[in-house]
């Protein structure tokens, strides 16, 4: 059994992986990306993985083969206890990983620029801006052009670039809708950007990637991607909401609360988002935030 050690480990690893994949089944969302950005990010992973396997598969095979062939009990194996150096062989294993890393590095350079979170998606459809505020402990989405806002639910039109502007009025969070794109952090007093586009209608799970306190686990929402006409209807319906979001209602919304149910608002104060960001820029004495510590 000793000698099969490596093979056994590999076998166990593979069977657990297969078992885990079967348990996960259709829920492995990164295997079915549904957005312009996510599709490219996942394709990039697949490419990088293939490049790495060029080196990893030989390492696995060699480790097993060498350990097995040169086991102490094998009298047929050559034993050269003082053989310690071979320029050619060492040159090979400095060079081969080096070449693969050069390939990966060029992919890294181009993909980092192509898929920069701050870079808009170039299409003829104008982008829809959504301002995101991470709160203790819920997500607030403000649609400035539509004059509406939602909490813990997001609706976006398909085939339309979405320009998220993220901030927080709470500790750091990171917005993540795995099937649509990777994460971007949301931080108080700062605005970060994330551009996504949903290709197909559907309900996609969203959550926060950066721990922000006791109610963090409840910062989950569904991103509904709907057709452009359905989006228009949804906006009109939301405009009829009886709840209005202005600085007064925002104050109670921003107070810590956990597992908050989805809610829709009419945006009463178009300057709200800028005010949320800018209040951290004022001197601590004049600030009404708890951040003055």
């Amino acid at each position: 059994m000793n000698r099969y050690l490596f093979l056994i480990i590999l076998g166990i690893m593979a069977s657990i992986a297969l078992f885990a994949l079967s348990l996960g089944g259709s829920h492995i969302v990164l295997f079915s990306p549904q957005g312009y950005i996510a599709k490219r990010e996942v394709a990039l992973m697949a490419l990088a993985l293939r490049l790495m396997l060029i080196i990893v598969i030989p390492v696995f095979a060699l480790t097993f083969a060498i350990a097995w062939h040169y086991r102490a009990g094998n009298a047929k194996a050559r034993y050269l206890p003082n053989w310690e150096h071979n320029r050619l062989e060492e040159a090979i294993w400095w060079a081969v990983p080096f070449l693969i890393i050069i390939a990966l590095a060029s992919i890294t350079w181009t993909s980092s620029h192509a898929l920069d979170s701050y870079k808009g998606i170039a299409t003829s459809t104008p982008a829809l801006e959504i301002d995101v505020v991470a709160l203790d402990w819920k997500w607030l989405f403000i649609y400035p052009a539509q004059r509406i806002a939602t909490v813990n639910t997001l609706t976006i039109p398909t085939g339309t670039p979405i320009a998220f502007k993220l901030t927080a009025d709470a500790p750091m969070n990171a917005l993540w809708i795995p099937q649509l794109s990777g994460q971007e952090m949301a931080m108080p007093g700062m605005v970060t950007e994330l551009h996504i586009e949903a290709d197909a209608p559907g309900a996609y799970h969203g959550l926060s990637g950066n721990y922000s306190g006791a109610g963090f686990a409840g910062m989950q929402f569904t991103a509904h991607a709907v057709s452009k006409s359905a989006f228009g209807a949804w906006v009109a319906e939301t405009r009829m909401s009886t709840s209005t979001l202005d600085r007064v209602t925002y104050a109670s919304l921003a107070a810590p609360s956990e597992n908050v149910a989805p809610e829709r608002y009419v945006l009463g104060d178009p300057g709200l988002y800028t005010w949320i960001v800018m209040k951290y820029m004022t001197p601590p004495a004049a600030s009404s935030t708890p951040a003055s510590g």
Binding site: L104, S111, S112, P178, G182
Partner: peptide
């Protein structure tokens, strides 16, 4: 290590960060 190099590609990391 393979998982690590995968996450060293920034856009791939975006999808796996803090996961």
């Amino acid at each position: 290590g393979m998982a690590g190099v995968l996450m060293a590609v920034p856009p791939a990391d975006f999808e796996l960060h803090e996961s």
